[in-house]
Amino acid sequence: MAQAGSIVSPDEGNEKQPLGLLLVAIPVLLIVWLVIWPIISAVIDTLWRSDGHGHVGFDASSYVFFFTDTYSLNNLALTLWTTGICAALLLICCLPIALYLRFGRGRITGYVQTLAILPLFVPSIILAYAFIRVLGPNGFYDIVLHGLGLPKLRTPYLTPWGPVIGLVWDNIPLTVLILLSGLGSVKDQAVEAARDVGANRLQVLRHIIMPTISNSILVALSFAVLGIFSAFTLPYLLGPASPEMMGPFMQRTFDDVNDPVAAVTQAVISFAFCILFGLFYVRSVARNQGRQP
């Protein structure tokens, strides 16, 4: 095999090597079969449908139904609202954490870092359970408030804010990590030079740091949006029954209502709403890849 592999230098790729293709074939075929093909087939199956007499033709009725059905539209609106709020909250929470981890010199940076990364290691199902025990009715924070003689919390459990809190919690680590990796390219000397010419901390943030990490922010947001838009477990367990987010909506349509075509239509609509973020994500990873071969 690696007559090819280990000794031929990269410059020597002109020899055709079917062996390499052979070795990567199975994973690639899996991706084609279980990612690429389902997406293509989803679009085709929802647009070219049998009319019941064996005649297959163009038929966008499932989309027409979705966009005229108040319930579906409400679900979509809730999803967009949740995604937007989560993205904004994530940025508000994670940017200070990342900035502190990059520039802070206190002794507790290690502690802050551990805590910020910890949710990465907590499965969302355990998170959902903990959420209910803490923020649910008569949850731990209610107990604490009661003990302090304060009124009870208006619990976010089973309201649209439930999934928002859960999803933000869940996405903090990756957002912090991506922002941190972006902040890694902010040179200490650039900051020092800016302060040297008289910029205060806010001006340093605005003119030196933000322009450098804007790409990382976009990547972090794309990643969060892709994860949040069709999140299932947290909205399903923590969110309201109606309207519901696209994730639970699709699951119910598929399993309970037993209408795969409608469920797939909802999936395609989700794809359409996220396509820009997906493309951006792929583009920046690909570019990153090119930078460090």
Binding site: P38, A42, F229, M246, Q251, C274
Partner: peptide
């Protein structure tokens, strides 16, 4: 690169 649950449904 796609919303995950949407992909799962397809």
């Amino acid at each position: 690169a796609f919303p995950k649950f949407g992909l799962l449904v397809t």
